[in-house]
Design a protein around this nucleic acid. Sequence first.
DNA 1: GCAAATTCGTTCGTATACAAACAATTTTAG
DNA 2: CTAAAATTGTTTGTATACGAACGAATTTGC
Lengths: 140, 140
Amino acid sequence: MSAGDYRLDEQVGFLLRRAQQRATAVFTARFAGYGLTPTQFAALAKIADEGEVSQNRLGRLTAMDPATMKGVTDRLSERGLIAGRADQEDRRRTQWRLTDPGAALLAAAYGDGFAVTAEILDPLSPRERATLLRLLEKIV
Amino acid sequence: MSAGDYRLDEQVGFLLRRAQQRATAVFTARFAGYGLTPTQFAALAKIADEGEVSQNRLGRLTAMDPATMKGVTDRLSERGLIAGRADQEDRRRTQWRLTDPGAALLAAAYGDGFAVTAEILDPLSPRERATLLRLLEKIV
DNA sequence: GCAAATTCGTTCGTATACAAACAATTTTAG
DNA sequence: CTAAAATTGTTTGTATACGAACGAATTTGC
C-alpha cells in the first residue's frame, strides 16, 4: 500500500474517465452538424420513446440530476426542439414532448448515433463488445 | 436503423457516462475528508511520481487539456498542496512539485484510492476485473 | 383529516471538460 | 541565420455534473 504501488493508469476510475472522454470526442465529431451534445441527444431519444415525460422522470431515464436536467431542457426548448406544458393533474410537473423540428432532427441523427457506438467499439471483437457492455452494466 | 431500434441504455457511450458517474460518486464519498476531487488526486499522484513536472506535461499524464489543468493547478496551489516555479531553461514553462503538506495529504489518501477502486469493482470477479481494465484500455 | 414525509422543479456555487483564439517562447527547416 | 512551425500557458464561453438549500405541491401514515 505504499505510494509507489499506486498506479493511476491502472485504476478503473481513471480509465473510465479517459474512455468517456474518448466517447464524447467521437460523438462530438460525428454530431457536429446537428449541434447536439451527448446528453441532449439522450434526452431527445428518451422523450421520443416516452411520447411525453416529466422533467424529473426524464432526468432519471437519462441519468441526469434535476439541476443538470434543467439546463438541458432549457437549451433544447430554446432551440425549439422540445415543448413543455404544465401538468394539470400534478401542478409541480412540467411535461415535455418533441416538436416536429425536434422529431425531424432526431430521425436524421439516429444513424449517426449507431455510427458513434460502432466507432467507439471498433477496436474490439464482437465478443469483446458484448463483454464490455455486460461488465459496465454490472458496475453502474 | 429505425428510431425504435435505438436503445440508449445499450449504447456504450451512455454506459460509460453512467459508470463514470458511479465511480465519481464512490470517490467523492470516500474522499470527503480530504477535500480532493478525482482529478486533483490524479494530479497529486502524478506530480509525486514525477518529482517535478511542467503544467502541460502534467495535463497529458492525467488526461486533462491545458484549460482544465490550469483550474486544477490553481486550486491545488491556492490550498498550498503544490508549489510552482518558473523554468529558467524554457521560460514558457511552469514546473510543479508537491509541498510538504501536499505530500503528507497524498500519503494519507493513497489507501483510500485503492479502496475506491475496490468498491467500484466489487460486483465483478477477479477475472472480470482484469477483463474490464483490458477492454477499457483498448478503446481509450 | 391532517401533520409529516416525499416529490418536483429551481437556484446558487464549485469543478471538470473542451473549443477557440491569443501572446510569448522555443524549435525546426531551408 | 531566420522565417515558419510548434509548444506552453492563459482567457473566454458553453455545457455537463452535482451538493445544498429552497418553495410549492402531492402523497403517506396514523
